[in-house]
Design a protein around this nucleic acid. Structure first.
Length: 282
DNA sequence: ATGTGTTCCTGTCCGC
DNA sequence: TGCGGACAGGAACACA
């Protein structure tokens, strides 16, 4: 579920609650998610002070003293806060809900709960110097909102690729953080057909794609991400970018381009749905 | 080396 | 309503 904008939304919500706080207690309500939790995760976290909350691609990175905790939300993960003011609301602690797997109690009394029904998420803990070599981070491409993601870089990474551009942009080694929604939306805005071979897109069109990807992600972050089913901001609020979808989840609906008159199609590529307008995207 | 298909898991929705 | 199947924001892994 969560792509870069959703994870960034969660990070921004959690940061003021978590940064500077000491972890008072960690409750593991099962032994792992996608993989088993690291040995003695709760013990190793307890008493540590959270220096900073970062995001790399779709991963949340919690900087501790000498250690880094990595959290991935998979398809259905949420991290929500209770026991602390969040915007206009204050959610009191309640009894743990179904699929609440990890509970972080902070010294302030705030509680951060990781809930993940499908359990495709992950939690890991490693020594800070090992970050660049971490198996889940090692092969990640550039951050799409960073300076390393630019037209020459993207051209080079796509050159010679025979796979469809849709599949290539989902490949986290090419650019790190895009998922199914934002690839579909970016390709529509760039007028590129999702099935077009990545290595056969003209230079000007790839060059245009870079700022389009940035723009889609930035607008989505401003909207608090997209809530289809599971995504919630750290406050528990919904995201709102789904109201700005041009193609995602709009199969059969009219294309929103003025005067187009076409209808959105859905095709399957590498096992994932792609949505596009056959008239606007070539 | 690249490319595609399968798999992990729960929940929801749609057609019969 | 109940039941079966399709599908869901990810990505590691196994195979051609």
């Amino acid at each position: 579920m969560p792509e870069l904008p959703e994870v960034e939304t969660v990070r921004r919500g959690l940061a003021p609650v978590m940064e500077g706080q000491r972890i008072a207690r960690v409750t593991l309500r099962r032994a792992g998610l996608r993989w088993p939790f690291p040995k003695d995760l709760a013990g190793r976290l307890t008493g540590q002070r959270i220096a900073h909350l970062r995001r790399r691609s779709k991963y949340l990175l919690v900087d501790l003293k000498g250690d880094v905790m990595l959290i991935h939300l998979g398809m259905s993960g949420r991290m929500t806060v209770s026991g602390a003011p969040m915007g206009r609301f204050h959610r009191p602690h309640g009894a743990p809900q179904k699929h609440d797997h990890v509970i972080f109690d902070l010294e302030s009394g705030a509680r951060v709960t990781l809930n993940d029904p499908r359990r495709f998420g992950a939690v890991d803990l490693f020594a800070a110097p090992d970050e660049a070599a971490h198996p889940l981070l090692r092969h990640l491409g550039p951050e799409p909102l960073g300076n390393a993601f630019n037209a020459p870089d993207l051209r080079q990474r796509l050159s010679g690729k025979r796979s469809p551009i849709k599949t290539a942009l989902l490949d986290q080694r090419i650019v790190a953080g895009l998922g199914n929604i934002y690839v579909c939306e970016a390709l529509f805005r760039a007028g590129i057909h999702p099935a077009r071979a990545a290595g056969r897109i003209s230079k000007p069109r790839i060059d245009a794609l870079v700022p389009i990807i940035r723009e889609v992600l930035n607008v989505a972050i401003e909207a608090g991400g997209s809530s289809l089913r599971d995504h919630r901001q750290a406050s528990g609020d919904l995201g709102y970018f789904q109201h700005q979808f041009q193609v995602y989840d709009r199969e059969g609906a009219p294309c929103l381009t003025l005067g187009c008159g076409g209808h959105i199609r859905r095709i399957t590529q590498s096992g994932r749905s792609s949505f596009y307008c056959p008239r606007c995207q070539r």
